[in-house]
Design a protein around this nucleic acid. Structure first.
Length: 801
DNA sequence: TGACCACAGTTTTTT
DNA sequence: ACTGTGGTCA
């Protein structure tokens, strides 16, 4: 073929491939078709980042590097060039097949692509959409979290870094337990050396790959007492973990990095395996994760990182925004593509977001734009206090509902979880269904952890930590003394605790408790036998609940709490079942790993029609038609700790940016003039971020904006104003009631009276304590439990039955 | 071993 | 205000 034909082929090929991604905008398409070499994708909020990622992988699998290459295979003939040039939509199946075949240049096998994310949710979404778009074979792409990818590598080569392939994963709580023990053993004061604090230092040291030995010698040189103790604790901690064949979350990455650095053949294997490396949410990576990705991509250097420096909100957990800012320095010749068209929000919302984020210094610089309509201005509402704020939000949600919005179209986002209380109260009062995301997770519940601990010990007898958790739970007469003796013996012999406990007869000091120990190990061994005999996991779990007498213990005292606990441990069985459904070869070890790395079971589920409440952090990556951002006050958001610290302020501002850009159509920001926080009511100034929102896209409501000169009186009546007519004003605290005492006569109530409350439903009066002209009532409500109310204020919302 | 009291701490969160 | 924790006592 002539030179001319070859270049015509390249052009036609590119055109055909482009046509396969016609639904993307030019920038998105460029991001998809730029296949080779380092690529930094700056993807603004709502710019279709995930879509790009998926199409990029699809392009690699279908066409390899053809869209980014001038190479033409020798097999291409003149006729092929004409064929491509003449192609016209719509294509017949056979034309399409031929075009695909002609254009593909070294198409990539799914298992030669790795796409790392931070959350399982993101990884699953990626995988799912890939399979839907391409074929089941696309499921072979390594679409995983950092931790699951590393685990997969580590399980294979654990021996090379000093562990067994069956290592256990310690979560944060486990690590804390270990550290607490160590601090105690070292005779240190746990006030001066809180386990959490020591662990945070260790985590930072791990991030910079400092070994305990290095830190120890460095501390010895400095001669600083604190540093020395911390280094010793680090050393002990690492030793303890190794003895238990356990790794913490940091270790998973650290050990993988070390494995790849120190073993040329392993490194070479993965470097040639992963022809293409993609990293999602790159702004959230820490130094270790940077090392990991650059090691993995070290062969072909086909690394594509996607992120938004303006959305980096996890500095507090080790993310370094420098990774994304310095990408071009770390990878010479890196290409940069910006996705700045936003498909999510109205002009007003976007302008507000841009106005705020523009105040940050350390950023790549990016300006989101949209072709969406201007939309309504951002509403900034001033409330008198957090209850009035909540009441306004509820009223607006009800108004939204009247305009035809679904409940789930509304989200309320706050800076701190503590703020959800006042909101919940008011939503409940107005009968608005809501769901709170976040808080204590299922797998963090004590009873669930207990059951998991049993499973862990059966899986790995040398898991001392979990063994100690369950050996006397339910109580088996193996108290602290017996356990302490056993532990001492184990330490002396350098054996796992279980071995001592398994052969108590071999140790004279254990004479008294030998039988009890044996009873316990018999339970464990008996259960382990069932697994050896291939009993299916769900049945096995039933046996476990039974034989350990854990379920029985809960049934014996059927309090409300214990009933919930029983439900929870039964619920764990459905986790096992769903694990079995999604795995070809289910094993106990496999299940435990999944639990350890997949904790976000309680996720935002778009199916039920309820208002969603969550922190601004949890909202990242989500979007809602109507968004309420509450608590925009200096000291709360930005938080007290951030004010005065430049870096922290920028992070708070980024969080603000993230929060604002969650909204699609309507954004309401509220602040209160006084707020009760930590049991104290304090005056609050509007957040400085509010001043950074351009005036022309916002409208102020509430407070003095509505009430003019009455800006500092205490006779505000927001509550009444925004409450549903049939609902009386909510009970209030005496202090703020001075000018607002209800005219309703105080109910004369006695112990045992039944009452009906507009907000809390029906209940029975438990106690009445006279206080001046008022009385403190304690009422057990059927639905929500026991509440303490002041008789005077509560009378307005309550009637005697 | 369990129940009760004093006391501190209290941003954000994934793995 | 609230909650979880750690210590003491029966």
């Amino acid at each position: 073929m002539t030179e001319e034909l070859i270049s015509r082929f390249v052009v036609a090929r590119r055109k055909y491939i482009e046509s396969q991604f016609h639904n993307l905008n030019p920038m998105q398409r460029q991001a998809v078709l730029t296949t080779d070499g380092p690529l930094l994708l700056l993807a603004g909020a709502g710019s279709g980042k995930t879509t790009v990622l998926i199409n990029r992988i699809a392009n690699l699998i279908r066409f390899g590097c053809a869209s980014d290459s001038n190479l033409v295979p020798d097999t291409v003939e003149e006729e092929d060039v004409f064929f491509l040039e003449q192609l016209q939509e719509p294509l017949s199946d056979s034309d399409r097949r031929r075009a695909d075949y002609l254009c593909a240049l070294d198409p990539v096998k799914p298992w030669n692509i790795i796409a790392v994310t931070f959350t399982n949710k993101a990884a699953n979404e990626l995988k799912e959409r890939l399979v839907n778009m391409l074929s089941p074979e696309a499921g072979e792409v390594w679409a995983m979290t950092f931790h699951s990818a590393c685990c997969r590598i580590l399980r294979r080569y654990a021996e090379l870094v000093g562990y067994t392939g069956s290592f256990t994963i310690y979560d944060t709580a486990d690590s804390e337990r270990v550290m607490k023990d160590i601090i105690k053993e070292m005779g240190l004061d746990d006030k001066t050396f809180p386990a959490k604090y020591v662990l945070s230092i260790i985590s930072r040291e791990k991030d910079s790959m400092t070994s305990p030995e290095t830190l120890l010698s460095r501390a010895e040189m400095s001669g600083e007492f604190r540093a020395l103790q911390v280094a010793r604790a680090y050393n002990k901690y690492q030793t303890r973990l190794k003895e238990n064949n356990a790794v913490d979350f940091d270790d998973i990455i650290l050990l993988t990095v070390r494995l790849l650095q120190e073993n040329e053949d392993v490194r070479a294997y993965y470097q040639q395996k992963f022809r293409y490396v993609l990293v999602d949410e790159y702004q959230d990576t820490n130094h270790l994760q940077y090392l990991l990705t650059s090691l993995l991509a070290g062969g072909y250097e086909n690394i594509c990182v996607v992120g938004d420096d303006d959305q980096s909100i996890y500095r507090f957990r080790g993310a370094t925004i420098e990774n994304i800012l310095d990408f071009e320095k770390q990878y010479r010749g890196a290409r940069v593509i910006r996705l700045e068209q936003n498909y999510r929000s109205t002009q007003s919302i976007l302008n507000a977001a841009n106005g705020v984020i523009a105040h940050n210094m350390g950023r790549k610089g990016k300006r989101l734009w949209t072709s969406n309509p201007q939309g309504d201005p951002v509403v900034v509402y001033e409330a008198s206090d957090e209850r009035a704020e909540a009441s306004y939000v509820s009223s607006q949600i009800l108004a939204g509902q009247r305009r035809g919005k679904a409940m789930k179209d509304h989200a309320i986002l706050y800076r701190t979880n503590a703020q959800s209380n006042a909101l919940e109260y008011d939503l409940k009062r107005n009968g608005i269904p809501y769901r709170i995301i976040g808080g204590t997770r299922f797998f963090d519940r004590a009873e669930v952890k207990d059951m998991l601990a049993y499973l862990c010990v059966i899986n790995n007898r040398s898991d001392d930590l979990r063994l100690k958790r369950i050996i006397n739970n339910p109580p088996r007469g193996l108290g602290p003394k017996a356990l302490d003796t056993a532990q001492r013996l184990a330490t002396a012999e350098g054996k796992p605790l279980y071995e001592v406990v398994f052969h108590p007869d071999a140790y004279a000091p254990l004479e008294k408790s030998a039988t009890k120990f044996k009873n316990f190990t018999q339970i464990i061994e008996g259960l382990a036998q069932l697994l050896v005999a291939d009993m299916p996991l769900p049945e096995f779990y039933e046996e476990l609940m039974l034989r350990t007498r854990y379920a029985q213990m809960l049934q014996e005292k059927p309090t409300e709490e214990n009933k919930t606990r029983l439900e929870n441990i039964r619920e764990l069985k459905s986790s096992i079942l769903s694990y079995m459904e999604n795995t070809q070869q289910p094993t106990l070890a496999g299940f435990l790993e999944e639990i350890a790395l997949y904790t976000d079971l309680e996720e935002y589920n778009a199916s039920d029609d309820a208002v969603v409440l969550m922190t601004m952090h949890s909202a990242k990556g989500l979007e809602f038609p109507n968004v309420f951002l509450v608590g925009f006050e200096d000291g709360l958001f930005p938080g007290m700790r951030s004010i005065g610290d430049h870096e922290e302020m920028e992070e708070e501002r980024r969080l603000c940016y993230v929060a604002i850009t969650r909204a699609k159509q309507n954004l309401t920001i509220t602040h209160a003039r006084s707020r009760m926080l930590y049991g104290r009511t304090a005056a609050a100034m509007p957040s400085r971020f509010l001043r950074e929102i351009p005036e022309d896209v916002m409208v102020k409501k509430g407070g003095y904006h509505t009430y003019g000169q009455q800006s500092c009186g205490d006779n505000f009546t927001y509550t009444a104003r925004y409450t549903q007519p049939q609902v009386a004003p909510r009970p209030d605290f005496a202090s703020s009631m001075a000018s607002n005492t209800p005219k309703t006569p105080m109910l004369e109530l006695n112990r045992g009276d039944m009452v009906s409350h507009t907000a809390f439903g029906t209940g029975v009066v438990l106690s009445v304590m006279k206080m001046g002209g008022d009385a403190l009532l304690e009422i057990a409500f059927d639905q929500i439990g026991t509440k303490k109310l002041m008789a005077k204020t509560a009378s307005a919302h309550m009637k005697k039955l």
